[in-house]
């Protein structure tokens, strides 16, 4: 979808777009929230410019920011995101436990985070082939499979 956009611009534009949506949400809130909307938009634009500048650097972070990562850098990013998501779920679990212990009404967002994590994990297993139907071992072609423990 974003292939027509120059690789170096992809991440800054994505961040700027997400930040603008967030700033618009503040603006829609009404009242004095428009000031926070401006702060959010300026922050996001500064962040987008920073990402664009870093994308020009000759290092792993630059390659990831510039959407030109090779296989090792993609693996690095994948592992870092997995670690980030693991930490987020641990934090959500701790938050949920505390919320339940103090009888707080704000327990459910933690549960939503844990549910999304579990759903995402299952979706990943399903997407990446764990649920694939595995054909029988073709070494037994034409013969019924024998258990290694049955003689």
């Amino acid at each position: 979808m974003m292939t027509f956009i120059r690789p170096r611009l992809r991440k800054p534009l994505r961040n700027a777009l997400a930040g603008t949506v967030f700033a618009a949400a503040w603006a829609l809130r009404g009242g004095n929230a428009w000031q926070l909307a401006i702060v959010a938009e300026v922050t996001v634009l500064v962040s987008a410019i920073t990402i664009y500048v870093r994308a020009g650097e000759d290092n792993d972070e630059g390659a990831l920011a510039g959407s030109r990562a090779d296989e090792r850098q993609k693996l690095l990013s994948l592992r870092s995101r997995a670690l980030g998501w693991n930490l987020a779920t641990v934090a959500a679990f701790i938050g949920l436990s505390i919320a339940v212990a103090v009888k707080a009404t704000w327990w459910w967002p933690f549960l939503v985070i844990l549910a999304v994590a579990a759903f995402g994990y299952l979706l990943g297993l399903s997407n990446y082939g764990v649920a694939e139907e595995i054909p029988a071992d073709d070494a037994n072609d034409g013969h019924p499979a024998r258990s290694p423990v049955s003689h």
Binding site: D58, D60, D70, E71, R72, Q73
Partner: peptide
């Protein structure tokens, strides 16, 4: 090879095992 200089450095140093295609 179509990879980054950092990846060549990592492979040479034995810190990264390339994929089979690479």
């Amino acid at each position: 090879l179509g990879v980054s200089r950092q990846t060549v450095i990592s492979i040479e140093g034995g810190r990264y095992l390339p994929s089979l295609p690479l």
